[in-house]
Amino acid sequence: MNEIQHGSSDPIGAVDGHDVVSGKPIVPLGHHELRRADIDPKAAIRAERQVATMFSLSSLMIVSSIVAFIKVPNDTLVILPLFGPVNANHITVGSLLGLGIFLIGTGAIHWAKKLMPDVEVTEERHAFASSAEDKAAFGQAIRDGKAASGVGERKIIRRSLLGALALFPLPLVVFLRDLGPMPNKRLRETIWDKDIQILTDATYRPIRPEDIPIGGLVNALPANLLKIEEEDGNLNERGKASIILIRMAPADIVSQQGEGWDYQGILAYSKICTHVGCPISLYQQRTHHLLCPCHQSTFDLADSGNVVFGPAARRMPQLPITVNAQGYLVAASGFKEPIGPSFWERG
């Protein structure tokens, strides 16, 4: 075991030039060729110096990275060719540290390759299966232990123990109950309702029909959203109530989800994709198509928001709208169907 095999005819695991396991012919290890550093002391010294240089440079870089960390300002951008503007502190500290670490590696590998012995050695593999005696003794120990505990005969102990062990994890699962509320009607309802004013998404301003030109698109929210968000402290309702308003020539409207749900060619659709719930933002004026940037589901807003392409199975829900006494756009009612992705109970 572990002896050097070079030059000898049969390596470990071979007899008469054949593998004792597979029977395949085995070619013995060839003669080992010496490296420059093995024969030429000058080459060896050169290699030694190269390794030491790498290690020393590494130290220098690592210390420099600490100096750079302290000295180079963190709020100054430098323009580097190819890389563009970069934070001066980040790039100096990172480059110095990276090179410093890298040089430890190259030094160590250079040392191993040039100066450490490169003669291949052979080690024996041992069979994995235990000996027949060991296996038998193991089996006997298991059987002895089983007999001593009486787990075989004492059925009542065994069964009651199994029962207890089976029940033990249950509370750990049940106690997770308060992770969240029951679904109830949450996924079916939004905060839209009759007469709720429609506000622009970015600036929260009410919208008059004449603010939207034909072909125009406005991202919008319900006027009651901000107050609810303040109370809830989360963005849940925004994730459901976001809508888009688009205006097209009334003659272009092929169909709607309900009679007169538009207001003078202004249609309101949910912004939340019925596939997996991405907010949809890409609208093509000419075709009236709405494209989801996540998975490319495409909806025809001139034709009831029906799916024309992609993985979404359901049309975009439409919100009936009208104007209030002051002439601002409002919802004529809430959504008539759940918005967003499908779920088991949706039907």
Partner: peptide, 30 residues
């Protein structure tokens, strides 16, 4: 050459692979 189903031909963990693999860690990190 020299490799059979019941042997391993190569270099020892110590010091060769300790230097090579250890060095390689620093290269990956660097």
């Amino acid at each position: 050459a020299g490799r059979t189903e019941s042997n391993v031909v190569g270099y020892r963990l110590y010091p060769i692979y300790m230097a090579k693999a250890g060095g390689f860690f620093f290269i990956v990190f660097g």
